Amino acid sequence: MAEIIQHKDSVPESCLGKRLDQTLAQMFPDYSRSRLKDWILAGSVTVNGEVQTRAREKMYGGEIIAINAEVEAEVRFEPQDIPLNIVYEDDDILVINKPADLVVHPGAGNPDGTVLNALLNHCPELEVVPRAGIVHRLDKDTTGLMVVAKTIAAQTNLVDALQRREITREYEAVANGIMTAGGVVDEPIGRHATKRTHMAVTFSGRPSVTHYRVMEKYRLHTRLRLRLETGRTHQIRVHMAHISHPLVGDPVYGGRPRPPKNATPELLAMLRSFKRQALHAAMLSLYHPITGELMTWHADLPEDFVELVQLLQEDNKLNAQQEY
């Protein structure tokens, strides 16, 4: 079965002087360079509305690049009976609350057992929708809300809305360190120079903006509410690590646990055993892709996140009593 791949974005200034194929590789890192080059040669790439078949064409920054390619699915994904926590569903969309330890889309190391396989089981008609209707992803161990399109029309509209930044996604997180006020991290994100599975703040990356505000301060940690303006891979995790406040438990960007002095044994154990990033997609708001109705959903914090927050709050109280 053929899948339609559609992307549209402006060339960042950091691509000044780069070839078209190099620019595409930077802008769309989810696809291999060979596949991107094949799309160029096949006439599936336009620059400022005109088909461009020369991979060596130089870019200047600011051009509008669009990909509209049809590819045969390399793998036929199988439906699997994996439970889904469905928050909302109608004829066009469904919203799920994803648990930790569940990959969204099959890939290297995770050929099945994913959200995609579960969606195909729950809704077999998603077989004809690219990526089984998945519009955006959450990392394997990030919990919370995701919207899925049940039709191609709904998916097209939602992808366009996401690119226009008309879908609001808010997260809760616990970060290491004491943060005194909210702010904005406006730093480009791209592939790490040497660790290809990692992302990093890099001059050649794509524009990335994360807004955050302080919800609660603990002795050596801060509970945050964050809003994505863009949606890059690992964006919140990379941005918070970049400003020296990595998320608690982050196995890639977080470093070792950082307990406060004289922490209770329970808090010490929790910080040492929290092996995933303390990050939860708590709110999702969008205009329904077919009816145009504004819809908003909220997802309660998962149990491990709740327990972490409670222990940090208790640590605050115990410390305040001792000081008194």
Score class of each variant (00 low, 15 high):
53 T>Y: 02
55 A>E: 09
64 I>R: 15
50 E>H: 13
46 T>V: 04
55 A>C: 03
48 N>A: 06
43 G>Y: 05
61 G>Q: 11
54 R>I: 11
41 L>A: 07
52 Q>L: 03
60 Y>Q: 14
52 Q>K: 12
69 A>L: 05
47 V>Y: 06
56 R>I: 12
60 Y>T: 13
48 N>F: 10
63 E>D: 09
53 T>Q: 13
61 G>L: 10
67 I>M: 03
61 G>N: 10
51 V>R: 05
54 R>T: 07
57 E>N: 08
50 E>W: 04
46 T>K: 08
43 G>V: 03
65 I>C: 02
42 A>T: 02
43 G>C: 05
52 Q>H: 07
52 Q>N: 12
44 S>G: 02
59 M>Y: 08
49 G>Y: 01
46 T>C: 01
45 V>R: 02
48 N>G: 08
47 V>T: 10
61 G>T: 10
54 R>D: 15
61 G>S: 09
69 A>C: 06
50 E>Q: 15
55 A>Y: 03
63 E>L: 11
59 M>E: 06
42 A>H: 02
60 Y>D: 06
63 E>A: 09
69 A>Q: 03
54 R>V: 09
60 Y>R: 14
59 M>I: 10
50 E>F: 07
55 A>L: 03
70 E>P: 00
61 G>D: 13
69 A>H: 03
60 Y>A: 13
65 I>E: 04
70 E>N: 04
70 E>L: 08
49 G>K: 01
59 M>F: 08
64 I>V: 15
58 K>W: 11
67 I>W: 09
62 G>R: 10
43 G>R: 02
64 I>K: 15
57 E>A: 15
50 E>N: 09
52 Q>I: 02
70 E>T: 11
57 E>G: 08
46 T>M: 02
52 Q>G: 01
50 E>A: 13
58 K>T: 14
46 T>R: 07
44 S>P: 00
64 I>P: 00
66 A>S: 14
44 S>M: 11
58 K>I: 14
66 A>F: 00
69 A>M: 04
60 Y>C: 10
69 A>G: 07
52 Q>M: 10
47 V>K: 01
47 V>R: 05
51 V>M: 02
54 R>L: 12
63 E>H: 09
55 A>H: 06
59 M>L: 14
54 R>C: 03
70 E>I: 07
68 N>C: 07
51 V>W: 00
48 N>Q: 12
57 E>F: 09
62 G>A: 11
70 E>R: 07
